[in-house]
Amino acid sequence: MPGPRSRVRRHLRNLLALARTSASRHQVGQARWKFLTWCADADIPEVRTLAATVDRWWNEIAAFIATGHSNAKSEGINRVIKLVARNAFGFRNAGHQRLRTRCVTTRRARGHLRTA
């Protein structure tokens, strides 16, 4: 039998999977209620914290479910920029630091474009 953490993942995945189904607002509301109710009944602090986070970010999650679009790509690029900036800390020339960040975030550097 799956543990409570795997069940909460399953409930959250079921909620987010509605983005690919053109679900009605009623269906989304039912899935949200089911997820939050299950989390509230769970006697696990981390699960309750997750439920509070989902509830706090519900407008953004609902927009994702309605449109199927997220800002994951831009968030990933921002994470890489911060990482490179952290590694390049100490460059005396801000232009070099900016150039290094730009080079790392291009498609060629990330491996999307292959040259023969």
Rank of each mutant, 00 (worst) to 15 (best):
M1Q: 09
P2G: 06
P4Y: 11
P4F: 08
R5H: 12
S6K: 11
R7P: 03
R10K: 11
L15D: 00
L16R: 01
A17S: 09
A19T: 03
S22K: 10
A23V: 00
A23H: 00
H26C: 10
Q27M: 05
V28M: 01
G29S: 06
W33K: 06
K34E: 01
F35H: 00
F35E: 00
F35Y: 08
F35K: 00
W38I: 04
D43Y: 01
I44F: 06
I44G: 01
T49V: 05
A51P: 02
R56D: 09
W57I: 05
W58D: 10
A66V: 15
A66S: 12
H69Q: 15
N71A: 07
A72M: 03
S74I: 15
E75S: 12
I77G: 11
L83I: 13
V84Y: 05
R92F: 05
R92S: 09
N93C: 08
N93E: 05
N93G: 07
N93Q: 13
A94G: 02
G95V: 02
G95K: 04
H96P: 04
L99Q: 07
T101H: 04
V104P: 08
V104S: 10
V104E: 12
T105L: 04
T105W: 04
R110D: 03
R110N: 04
G111N: 07
G111S: 07
T115M: 11
T115C: 08
T115L: 14
A116H: 11
